[in-house]
Amino acid sequence: MSARWAVVVFPGSNCDQDFVRALRDVMRVDVRVVWHKDSVPDDVDCIAVPGGFSYGDYLRAGALAAMSPVMESVRRHAERGTLVIGVCNGFQVLCETGLLPGALMKNRALRFRCHDAYLRCELDGGPFAAGQLAKGDTIRLPIAHGYGNYYVPADQLESVRKQIAFTYCDALGEVSDRANPNGSVLNIAGVTNEAGNVLGMMPHPERAVEALLGGTDGLCIIRAMNRWAENTAVR
């Protein structure tokens, strides 16, 4: 059975339609849009929390969205194993919701940055990589954020180390400070929760799904999720 997707929309989301298009027009999967005042339906297998400036990023990026009715339903879904991916502002929302560890601070250079970044896959199989990416693979995805500087307190670093999904690297796959666009601790570009079914990442896989626009590496992650959900449908 083909996986069912939901894309959450807050006022101020601006990558929601990009995600919908990647799923509907490129992946050709079933996708519905869920407004922030509603709940994600029970029969959904994968949830995308998109990028943008939810609620204008007032107070703190993602802080208000974390209090929205829709995120309550996302939390329930996550607890029962539904796959959740939060990208950019969606990553910030998942951290603020407590579904992911850590926080995202202002970029080290204090400026918004939009360009392609190379990422090293740190996942060894699992819902976001299985059959698509091997540990150590390098992919290229666009980044576009002002607050992508991932931080976890020193006493949590050891546990988070096991949950790293992607790190910033150079074109040759070398993880270095030079390749770190925002100052993230351990070059972290994306992390999962402990259970491994929730992923947050600053780079945009949904922006890299068509060769015309400069790359298709983002498809790996979306495809992996899709396959995983098809095979293990929890609904």
Binding site: N14, C15, Q17, D18, R21, A22, G51, R111, F112, R113, C114, H115, P142, A144, H204, E206, R207, V209, E210, L212, L213, G214
Partner: peptide
């Protein structure tokens, strides 16, 4: 300058 602008949002940008 242009790296401070999100020049890819809406996923339509062919020539950056």
């Amino acid at each position: 300058i242009y790296e401070q602008y999100d020049h890819q949002v809406q996923t339509n940008t062919v020539a950056r």
